[in-house]
Design a binder for these strands. Sequence first.
DNA 1: TTTGCTTTTACGGAAACCCGTAAACTTCTT
DNA 2: AAGAAGTTTACGGGTTTCCGTAAAAGCAAA
Lengths: 222, 222
Amino acid sequence: MFNKVLIAEDLDTISIAIVQALETLSITEIHHTKYCDDALLKLKKALHDNVPYDLVISDLSFKVDHRENKLTSGEELIEAIKKVQPGIKTVIFSIEDKSFRIKSLFNNLGINAYVCKGRDSIQELQAAIQRISNNEEVIVSNELALALRDKTIFEIESYDIILLKSLAKGQTLDEISSEFKDSRIQPNGSSSLEKRINRLKIYFKANNNVHLIAITKDLGLI
Amino acid sequence: MFNKVLIAEDLDTISIAIVQALETLSITEIHHTKYCDDALLKLKKALHDNVPYDLVISDLSFKVDHRENKLTSGEELIEAIKKVQPGIKTVIFSIEDKSFRIKSLFNNLGINAYVCKGRDSIQELQAAIQRISNNEEVIVSNELALALRDKTIFEIESYDIILLKSLAKGQTLDEISSEFKDSRIQPNGSSSLEKRINRLKIYFKANNNVHLIAITKDLGLI
DNA sequence: TTTGCTTTTACGGAAACCCGTAAACTTCTT
DNA sequence: AAGAAGTTTACGGGTTTCCGTAAAAGCAAA
């Protein structure tokens, strides 16, 4: 089992429960931060002092408040952590249940487990930690496993995200077209943009641009 | 101080912390449910047995799972509760921080306090409960108080919400027009709909319909 | 270099939007 | 009952989206 664990979770209510859950796993050193920046700092310090953490458990979204922070999300935090301590084990513990986003967490960040906050998430979290410490393979909490195996999930590129965000900002196709030309983003012909949007509309079963933006916003894609 | 309190909160991690917070206020009877339907049932039972609850603390959003539920949100739960036990005190404890929505909770549901889940929410929750038990007036957790006093907040009617939701569903103005005629919603001329949408676009500084929907979705209005 | 395939771009017409103006209808006052 | 004020609807024309077709450009294999 792990010895030293770092928790990044802003909600006081939740962090209490996580700490309790870890204590029952007889983990001796449990540290907790409410901000991503603090978590990275603690991790660097521990590494420097030769008493590194074995495991990080992080939320995805952190509330913004008066404090200025460099890292504003769990994704950014994990990315930064992997740069300074690539071998560390990571668990995401979040309310997010959109398969799109979770899939990208495994693919892009290489997390070891994803546990979805829910009605029995403490058990799931404990089980996930157990399995990671036994070096079992990547772990997804129950209901999500199915969604992720679904290979039909359309591969949305960052290009599509930029395009959708531009639309959501109220720009016309011509405006987006010239913006893309300025930023050297291709394809940038207004006709190609149309075609790309059309692909998205077909995939998401959207009647028109308004519908498309509503759907992708609901999915948390933009 | 209250004697008998009911908590409706789906996330196991959070409910643990709430229960602990209430225990330190020396509240003797604390009950907890993970589903809105169960909460209403418990409340009815207690009322029938002549040992009613004094206070309800509820989350706003509840995860959907395998179970079929009549009540799917904290709003619906509070509304149902007020029908069977109008005098009961109610607190909403949620992550939601959109002033539009919170304002409507006070106006439409008549809740006694709104506490926003955050980095120091346990203290705030305890303070709110204290104040309610002393019969002090309506309570909003700190940062929100300012937003709510802002009288400039545009009065969005339910008509506007329906209109925006129809747009977000991808319907055209003509489709919405005939739908409104069927549902006896007025005004329903496609020209009037345009005018109304235009008012919203001016208020929200939206360039076009796509932009308008993106903005209002971000605000949690739809 | 040619051939075939894919991607990108261009074009054109129909539909939906955007926006201003004006007519028709309500409602209220006198 | 007539007029004023406000609301709802109709209409017209410019812009943008929407959608099909086709040309141009890029690329790989022969």
